[in-house]
Design a protein around this nucleic acid. Sequence first.
DNA 1: ATGAAAGCGCTAACAC
DNA 2: GTGTTAGCGCTTTCAT
Lengths: 345, 345
Amino acid sequence: MKKPTLKSIAKALGVSVSTVSKALKNSPEISPRTRERILEYCRLHQYEPNRMALGLRHRRTGIIGVIVPQTGHYFFSRVITGIQKVAEAAGYRVLIAHSNNESRAEREHLQLLANGYADGVLLTLAKETLQKGDFRHFLPWIQRGFPLVFFDRYPEKLPVSAVIIDDTEAGRRATEHLLRMGKRRLALISTPVYLSVGYRRELGFRKALNDNGLPVDENRILRIDERRPLGEQIRGLFRQTPPPDGIFAVNEQYAAIALNLAHETGMKIPAELAVIGFSDGIIARHTYPRLSTVVQHGFRMGQTAAELLLAQIEADELPPKPQIKIIDTGLVVRGSTSAYPVERL
Amino acid sequence: MKKPTLKSIAKALGVSVSTVSKALKNSPEISPRTRERILEYCRLHQYEPNRMALGLRHRRTGIIGVIVPQTGHYFFSRVITGIQKVAEAAGYRVLIAHSNNESRAEREHLQLLANGYADGVLLTLAKETLQKGDFRHFLPWIQRGFPLVFFDRYPEKLPVSAVIIDDTEAGRRATEHLLRMGKRRLALISTPVYLSVGYRRELGFRKALNDNGLPVDENRILRIDERRPLGEQIRGLFRQTPPPDGIFAVNEQYAAIALNLAHETGMKIPAELAVIGFSDGIIARHTYPRLSTVVQHGFRMGQTAAELLLAQIEADELPPKPQIKIIDTGLVVRGSTSAYPVERL
DNA sequence: ATGAAAGCGCTAACAC
DNA sequence: GTGTTAGCGCTTTCAT
């Protein structure tokens, strides 16, 4: 692997390194003849500057780093697309790292990106980090004012910028929708409580019931243990008598599983059972009937987060003042809750 | 943003830069007292070396770059997971860039990663690149022997290493499965022909029919135009008389849409219509009934590709000899084609 | 019009 | 045991 460098080019052409450098930047200092000779050579050998050297020199890489738990999640992929849109318009490129929901990987990738690889980092917390509640690896960066913006899951106690949705309100509205469709025996399929977004959606569920003077039946609140088969856990809801007539699931996967189990037991959707999910993704559009869901506007979340980050990068005031931005949520009503679905309500 | 550097530490402690460097590496040359003083200071100020400087110095970054069209695709996310597994076991980190299926982004990200950011790059071709057939941006890297391995979609005319599946054979087997389920009026939902993987799956479809002495009804071959609504295009198949009794779709999305359209027209699945998809992903597991699909083993593809790349990186022979590895495919038989589904056939 | 030199942050061979 | 130096690839100021 012998890539041409300024040095190798200079040597080959019998000029100095700085002459080559200037020629490549079309500096008027260089005579047309020399410049042409150099450009010609560079074209021939496909010279491209080493990005590490550029980064070292300029203390600027033009890269934005993103850390997500994993790819393959529709919501995060929308966020990333939003980030890319804004970043690219501003002349930045985006590099993505996966935390696999592990704190160690999260920390190491942040170290990598923040120690020179990127000008700023956008990230959402790994589940493990959230569970352990140990956010120390972020402190040095926050203190130094390194450009850092969280989205979706973030350390609430720390003075950081974040772009989030109002999960409680969204959960309340989803539940309210089921109530408005005339459902009364509502069940909730949620995550373990340490996942704060799931927990807040649950709070919204409770609030909606309270607001409507309805009791919360704790037997109809299911907290999924992700290490065990999901279907078996959800099936429990259908064994109750009477079974629920409305289900709010805090993500689209749980909702889809519930929907399909309902088919198996022969329940009519949405007449006998209405199901609403969260996070309008790829699954929701491919079930039968299609799933009503809360829409998280991942694309806008990404855009907003990127804008916040770019402002931090370019302002360079230290420390950047923490800002929390809340992105609206919406509701898509499809066949799983309504016989007369409207795409956006 | 004032991050500590060896220089700033050395100055603060009144020692030289190399003393600090050595102390941090626990060099026996440094006296315990000095070492402790330095380590203490570094701990306090959370010193971490600049990765750009390290990269420049060592000409090795410990990073593997991956370029994929986009995230959010289950198959690619499995490939990436496989890559990470192998990479991390070998002490490498993985950084991902999106081409958005555009040649320009593909080229620029490759430039970035190959010019210092990574020790090697794994990638799958952007649709645009495949469509235009212009692979010139890969040539310099191939010539220089920069470690580069393709997976899934790759430039077949170029002397490169790639990990792929036998799409023709997989398509043949999927079709064969429909035939074995007693279906005879088979339809195919495919992609535009420039997507070679889709085209090869089509060849397999034709081969299976030929092998069984059955004619190919060109009216039942649908090539999707992704710019138009998918549902409308697929609905056409159901307007034929008689309608197909078996559908092979070259991806899971098309298969799911076909399945749900069949529900709408009241067809019984799989008795009146069997549907099989390709690429066993998140959608296939959440339809009703669940989709039979060809399994692509993305995880293994990622592992294999990473192994090939690591070998190139570490061998460092120039040029690396091109290798094509073929990953087996499988078939998962679920409810969409069989009343007695077996998970793995 | 061209080149030398310093420096970005780090390492390692070589003094002392 | 500690420091000096050269150099990774590049830019930029300051000579010449």
